[in-house]
Computed example of a mutant assay.
Amino acid sequence: MAINRAAPSLTAAAGRVGCAPSTVMHRKKGRKTRKAEEEKRQNMTPEEKDQVLERCYFRCRLGFPPTIWQWKDIAYLIVHQ
């Protein structure tokens, strides 16, 4: 908003959006959101996570829920395919 001149300053833009002025200033300088930074640090993509959950839910529906070690094996196999 401040860049497009819709708001006179970053503080005014933050007030209109409903966040802290420091957040707007950090975003303007290029800082990413927490969610974006967390996704970058993850070992699996969201698609891989969905595949792991799908396989584990399938086993649960069969009546054989996976143990923690089986979860890890399933995740390892999906990531290294």
Rank of each mutant, 00 (worst) to 15 (best):
Q42A: 14
K28Q: 14
A75Q: 15
A13M: 05
H26L: 12
G18M: 10
M44G: 01
E54S: 08
I3R: 12
V24Y: 09
Y76T: 15
Y76N: 15
Q81P: 07
A75F: 14
P65L: 12
P21M: 06
K32M: 04
T23N: 05
K29I: 03
T23S: 12
K35L: 15
Q51H: 13
D50C: 04
G15N: 12
L10M: 10
V17L: 10
G30I: 10
V52S: 06
H80Q: 15
R41K: 14
A2F: 05
L77D: 14
T45H: 08
M44R: 13
L53W: 00
R5W: 02
F64I: 02
P8V: 05
C19T: 11
R61P: 00
N43P: 01
E48Q: 15
A20P: 04
A20D: 11
K49V: 08
E39T: 03
R61V: 00
P8Y: 04
S9K: 07
E47K: 14
K35P: 02
V17S: 03
T11W: 08
W69T: 11
V52K: 04
V24N: 14
G15A: 08
E47A: 07
R55M: 00
P65S: 12
P66Q: 13
K40M: 03
D50R: 10
L77R: 15
K35D: 13
A13G: 11
W71Y: 14
T33W: 01
A2H: 13
A12L: 04
K32P: 00
K40L: 04
M44E: 05
T33V: 01
Q70P: 03
L10F: 06
R61D: 00
R61Y: 02
L53F: 00
D50K: 06
K32Y: 01
K35Y: 05
G15E: 12
L62R: 09
K72S: 13
Q51N: 08
E48D: 08
E54N: 02
L10Y: 07
A7K: 04
E48Y: 06
E47D: 06
E37Q: 07
G30F: 13
R16F: 03
C19W: 04
V79E: 08
N4A: 12
K32L: 13
K40P: 04
R41D: 09
R55F: 01
R27V: 10
A13K: 06
A20E: 09
R16A: 07
V79I: 12
E39D: 13
T67A: 03
R61W: 01
G63C: 09
K28V: 10
K35Q: 15
G18L: 08
S9P: 01
V17C: 09
G63Q: 06
W71E: 07
G15V: 02
P66W: 02
L53G: 00
E39P: 02
A14W: 10
R31K: 13
T23I: 02
L62V: 01
K28A: 11
T23P: 08
E39I: 05
P8W: 05
R59T: 00
I78K: 14
M1W: 05
